[in-house]
Design a protein around this nucleic acid. Sequence first.
DNA 1: GACTTTAGAG
Length: 618
Amino acid sequence: MDALCLSVSPSSAPSPQALLHSFNSPWELKQLHAHLIKSSVPLSSLPLPRVAAVCGPSPAGFPYAHRILTIVQGPASTTSLWNSCLKALAEGDSPSDAILLFYRLRDLDVLPDTFTCSFVLKACTKLLDLENGRIIHGYVEKLGLRWNLFLENMIVNLYASCGEMGDAEKLFDSMPKRDTVTWNTMITQSLKRGYTDKAHSYFTRMPERSVRSWTAMISGLAQCGKHEEALQLFRKMKGTDLRPNEVTVVAVLAACAAVGSLDLGREIHEFSDKSGFTKNTHISNTLVDMYVKCGCLEEALKVFNAMEERTIVSWSAMVYGLAMHGKGQEALSLFDQMVRMGVRPNGVTFVGLLHACSHMGLVDQGREFFAEMIRDYGMNPNIEHYGCIVDLLSRAGHLKEAREFIKNMPMEPNEVVWGAFLGGCAVHKNIELAEEATEHLSQLDPHNDGYYIVLSNIYANAKRWEDVARVRRLMRSRGVKKTPGCSTITIDGEVHRFVAGDLGHDGAEEMSQRWEVLLGKMKSRGYVPNTSVVLLDIEESEKEKFLYRHSEKLALVYGLINTRAGTTITIMKNLRVCQDCHEALKVASEVTSREIVVRDRNRFHLFKDGICSCGDYW
DNA sequence: GACTTTAGAG
């Protein structure tokens, strides 16, 4: 019956309880206060936490609220109310108000406890506010709260987060007691700054390691680019009785994706299913990315389709994945589907889309997307998007337009932008523009050899040997060393690495023989070694020998010897595939009746029946 | 009596 009454008169006067909550500013509270006095309602019926929350951040409201709290609670027990207020501020989006409120408390002689300090320290850490952090640190010591491990750990973390590793270490060394959190903090922060040796040292010195300790190491190493080290550590972790949690799994999957370690990735997938982790969006997103980067588009789609909830990260990963695998059309229609479902794309989504257009040579479509992100989504394209457009235009041979586009960019073009332009110049054999690009690149990224190599390839292609030699001298005089091409192939969970030109590994003799046989068959199917990519001015027959040194060919031969007939061969390469290897792999897929998957720096190539999925446009 | 610390995806 009560419910009925309520629904009949929805506009009846608010309940007294609701009235007591009805203030949103110190001023409204004062009015309410007056009303309470008139109707002799005791002050203690006010919701005190709300009084603190509404008035605390306001300079004028604070002393007023403090008076109310002191009247009702007595002077001693207002701290916890202020604490809840500080917590809300520190964890919300106004951590700087938390710091201001802390100082007001101090000025009114409200005695802070460990919780008070912890919230304001959190605020300082979030803001990377070293100056206030130091003051609070001093305050904590003055209050005699130094023995509190919670606070001590937070202060260590604060210094390290603000980039003061020295102070963090000094404090760490002086601590009479440390717990796992203390050590974990040092590990995480060391790795964030790339000090892997330091992190290792903390990790081995700590008396006891938790799941989070292992996870911090694995995830941090992966973020430093030490993916294989991360995976090694994970294998060690499996030997302990600790169980990986969701965060561990994300880190390991990311490392698998980087290395292309499909077997381990699959194993982790199974483990995630069994542990019920797969419903976690973070995990599924990383699984999608792992399968994409390990060459299993089908399985990536399977995970993506099975997801109950997709975020923009999931969609972007899938769009990018399709583009990477040469399924540009599918990437675009997946994007359409996403938009129709009302999901708003972000900057990363557009990077994937622009890549898709670039790989397919869809110049107009790409331009349209670029315009769309500005016009329809009000986004500010960043340098990565500009780089994509330069790539799109130059690959398609619109070199003049690309050059104009670079000139009109609102920011300074970086090495990625010029690198994309140079790539286009190489494909379309424009020596003059390539020279200009290299000029910029040698300033922007002087230690990267790739650009010099591309330029000298262009010269070699035009048989301008004196220029080839000049570039090589230039490299030598500038101390630029060639990054060797490197390919890996995983067989039975073991990663085999081949470096260009390294013929000194086990089984080299057998491999070389196998290559000769394969080469014979390939030539009879029309393969002509493309020696123009060899930099040296030597006899053609000699150059052919150099071509076999390319790492993807070595990996291919190794794969052919060590896998059963018919098995797909998957190769991961650190650089782009050269033209000759691309031709060779096409023909090899035909004569050996194998599918060959190659992941290069940019994308996947699936060689099958003499054809590559990239349509020779890469 | 409870409220506080370390980590994760495209």
